[in-house]
Design a protein around this nucleic acid. Structure first.
Lengths: 225, 225
DNA sequence: TTTTTTTCTTAAAAATTTGTTAATCTTTAG
DNA sequence: CTAAAGATTAACAAATTTTTAAGAAAAAAA
């Protein structure tokens, strides 16, 4: 079902987490600090890692960066454990590539549902079909990053895929550039408006002109019906 | 002025949102997860809900579907809180009916202006849809930037759209040219009075002559009933 | 590493919207 | 009934916005 690695320097916390996760049906493994975590990963690659931010030897953020920079391990979900007050590290953690964070003190029920959600999310094979379609169907398959248009499949790069997903999430709704930017690129990245246009063009090259409409002076929309 | 329900499992984020929204003059309410949100709605129906997508117990999408499938609550504006691109794709195509997306990390200023816009827009739209049916129906849809007249949809350029929106926002009220100018063009731009006339003409070309009336020596009005 | 792919930037071309002018038409006051 | 003021219209000019293409930078893959 799922294998989880718990990384924390406190044995009590490891035990608490381990107990609750195993009760839920996960298999678990432990590590006291970052280096040890890397060693454990090499032995058995987990589906998710619970990583304490504050640790001696190698802290959680460094560890996360290590994991995310390795091709073999970068798809492992990382969930940070942070003390409530230090919200700096929360942000830093997410920037380092963490997928979620849980604040101490740990509430077992919250922890479990959060972990379940994270694992479920990554596993969801929600392949979705846009209900009404202009001419022929367009299928967006998030698992394979493939888009099928009139029987032809296209492998889309990440940005193009995210952009199309956003537009198609609400057919006919106009997305202003600022909304596209903050949702596809994030609020911290600075890219020009033309960048969006270029990606739109590449999308249109692949899936055809009929799906994405330009509303001059406003933004773009995914046309449907 | 407006009542907003904040749904997120993290107390910190709720507090951040609450603080900023209340400073802006909104009343707020909180819920930790979907089920709790439904309970809060039953007590006091909000005008808008800020809904985190990733939540334990009942996630944002399920919650949104619940709300949108209930006649009593389906007109509540829903604004998703998404954790930027990668996580975003899970909403893709689900057509859960959200009205807008705000990406984390949250920038209070962006948030506020977006919320203001959503609430303002929903006010005018709902008024139009309910009271105003001149001869045949005219529907102004800000979301799709489309105007529907007797079954025909027109994609209006921005200025024309804004102009029509303004006039239709208060049917039968005469708008003086100076008022139109300052609302549609702004106070800093200098354009002649004839410019308005030309835009009026283009509007009439598209939606027909029956909606916009000229009051000589005064201005224009959107005729209703 | 080197190679390939993806992403971002730039600038010119194209398209469309927006604004101006002037001739013409309408209304209204005298 | 006529003149003056105001509004409409069409043609055109200007400004804005988007598309396109080409290439640099960055990231991923080999």
């Amino acid at each position: 079902m799922g294998h989880i690695l718990i990384v924390d320097d406190e044995a009590d916390i490891r035990a608490l987490l381990r107990y609750n996760l195993e009760k839920e049906g996960y298999t678990t493994d432990e590590a006291e600090h970052g280096e040890m975590a890397l060693a454990r990963i090499a032995i058995k690659k987990p589906d998710l890692i619970i990583l304490d931010v504050m640790m001696p030897v190698m802290d959680g953020i460094q560890t996360c960066e290590h994991i995310k920079s390795n091709l073999e391990t970068k798809d492992i979900i990382i969930c940070f454990l942070t003390a409530r007050a230090e919200d700096y590290s929360q942000i830093a953690g997410l920037d380092a590539g963490g997928d979620d964070y849980i604040a101490k003190p740990i509430r077992p029920k919250v922890l479990i549902s959060r972990i379940n959600a994270l694992i479920r999310r990554n596993r969801t094979v929600s392949r979705l079909v846009t209900d009404e379609k202009p001419q022929g169907d367009l299928i967006i398959d998030r698992e394979t990053h493939l888009v099928h248009v009139k029987g032809i499949s296209h492998q889309l790069p990440r940005k193009e895929f995210e952009l199309l997903s956003l537009l198609a999430s609400k057919p006919n709704m106009v997305f202003k550039r600022e909304v596209i930017l903050s949702n596809v690129w994030g609020t911290d990245v600075i890219v020009g408006d033309r960048t969006i246009d270029v990606h739109i063009r590449k999308l249109r090259e692949k899936i055809g002109d009929s799906y994405i409409q330009t509303i001059k002076g406003v933004g773009y929309k995914f046309y449907s019906k």
